[in-house]
Amino acid sequence: MTRARSNRGRLSRRSLIQRLTFLGGGVVLLGPACKRSSEPKEEPPAAKQDGQAPRTFSSLEYAVVAAATERILPRDEDPGALDADVPVYIDRILQTPELTPVREDFLSGVAALERRARRLHQKGFAALTAEQQDELLTVFKDSPPRSGEAHFFELLTVMTLEGFLGDPSYGGNKDKVGWRLMGFDTVGTVASAPPEGYDGPKCLRECGAHR
């Protein structure tokens, strides 16, 4: 439910990522948007993450996602996206059947980022320096509001934050590093996390289907 902001004229897909303060919680809504890349997907042998093959990404895509999420939340004096296993989260959550349009958008965005890197630097995104990666991500961020690039940047940020701050049972927020950084469950609130052994993905499969 959702609150529509009177944000006339620019309600594009931005309206799909809406806030929901009356409920207090904030909301989803990762809308379908950019066109699927027409290029065939490269399918090199799947990379291993923690001994498991990625479920959504090829190894090349996985490397791009890992590099990009680490620029959104780089390790500094506190853990970053890779420390929290954010790419594992994104790889797994995009298998949710209800998120098929989001998966397609995300994969097109990853392909677009990689294409842009190769065109500008003759190297894959993951092989660029951090400065070059930030420059490219900024180009995407500053693209026109309805563009696929801007949409992908927003999607990347949102999915990275979900992976950093969501329940660890989804594969990210490893050792609750995200919650520690934000103070959830530790400062000024008694909001408690789910119990040990909770399986969020299972609940999402079984409860979220709106049967």
């Binding site: 409920l23 904030g26 989803v28 959550i93 969501g166 996390a193 789910p194 609940c203 999402l204």
Partner: peptide, 10 residues
């Protein structure tokens, strides 16, 4: 359950 992804984002 206090799972923000399940409750608030799906």
């Amino acid at each position: 359950i206090h799972d923000e992804i399940l409750n608030s984002r799906r």
